[in-house]
């Protein structure tokens, strides 16, 4: 059985676009069309509002927590073309505002903490910018024309020790890689070389806008995995042993547009949210097949058995 652990009444005045828990699952950040970002403490099933952050002048699409070793840090992106980085310094304050995009910023993601404090932002202007913290200042790198018409999602490749990385001939530790999805129906893989980002791969299989991409956490064998979802109603899991050839596996063709894909902390289980009001959980069995193990929806359902089966 699955039960509802918390219900958080966020008090947002308009639609919530994203809700993210911090690293420990103790705090919740939400953002909404009411232009605000809110932070809640969740303790023993109760909630308290810690901060109501106002700084954006348009709907806020996404929020993301940085690794706690950098302090309590949150990034948000909005239709107002801005990316704001907030930090808890006694009170929650805006510590940086990034104004490098000409259109709505749709997605933000912090790099794996091993690389330092680095944020990637994908925008409707088609570009991806990368903000690198240097103590008190932030440097910017930019991938212009990453996706024609717009970039909808960004996701970082986990930091993998070069020994696992067959193409890793560099001696300077793990390579930074980024996956992006866009309105050109493509998923692209980018790799940092020197201070430039080069397009390492272009994954073609979707037939409509790619809505979300998610890099699976690295556990075990040196196989990289990436999930993408699209308005073509498909979820594709891409795998590769060398980051150069990628094998797509269509996880499923759904009844409606798929908006989000999310990997569980240790990989293995993928949560898929679609326009049909369902969030379903998928896992790969020992035979390499993807099966739906559980599903959350608004219709009638039966509550039987929630074992996560390996077979």
């Amino acid at each position: 059985m699955v039960s509802v652990l918390n219900t958080v009444d966020t008090g947002h005045e308009d639609m919530i676009h994203d809700a993210e828990m911090d690293y420990y699952g103790l705090r919740l950040a939400t953002c909404s069309s009411d232009n605000s970002v809110k932070i809640f403490d969740l303790k023993n099933g109760s909630q308290s509002l810690v901060a109501d952050l106002k700084g954006h002048v348009g709907p806020v699409w996404q929020v993301t927590w940085a690794h706690p070793k950098f302090g309590n840090l949150l990034a948000s992106c909005s239709y107002d073309r801005k990316v704001i980085i907030w930090k808890e310094l006694g009170e929650w304050t805006k510590i940086y505002e990034h104004n490098g995009h000409d259109s709505s910023v749709n997605s933000v993601a912090w790099a794996p903490h091993e690389f330092g404090l680095i944020l990637a932002c994908g925008s409707s202007d088609g570009s991806v910018s990368i903000l690198i913290n240097n103590g008190d200042t932030w440097d910017t790198q930019k991938i212009t024309n990453a996706h024609t018409i717009g970039c909808n999602a960004v996701s970082w490749c986990p930091a993998i020790e070069p020994s696992f990385d067959s193409s890793g001939t560099q001696k300077n530790g793990p390579i930074k890689r980024l996956a992006t999805g866009g309105c050109d129906n493509l998923v692209k893989i980018w790799k940092e070389e020197g201070d430039r980002w080069i397009e390492e791969d272009k994954l073609e299989a979707h037939s409509d806008w790619v809505r979300d991409v998610a890099w699976a956490p690295a556990v075990g064998p040196s196989k990289a995995a990436l999930a993408s979802c699209s308005q073509d109603r498909r979820v594709i899991v891409w795998t590769s042993n060398d980051y150069t050839s990628w094998t797509p596996t269509i996880l499923n063709v759904f009844d409606d547009v798929i908006w989000n894909v999310s990997w569980s902390l240790t990989g293995g289980i993928l949560a898929v949210s679609g326009g049909d009001n369902k969030v379903s959980l998928w896992r790969e069995n020992t035979e390499g097949q993807w099966t739906c193990i559980s599903e959350t929806n608004k219709g009638q359902g039966n509550l039987n058995n929630t074992d996560q089966r390996a077979l």
Binding site: L5, A19, E20, M21, Y24, G25, L28, W259, N260, S262, W263, S264, L265, T266, I269, A271, S273, G275, N277, K278, V279, L281, T296, N297, K298
Partner: peptide, 13 residues
């Protein structure tokens, strides 16, 4: 329309 994402090792928001 609902959206879900993983929270921790065993929770979904």
């Amino acid at each position: 329309r609902i959206t879900g994402s993983w929270v921790n090792s065993n929770r979904i928001g």
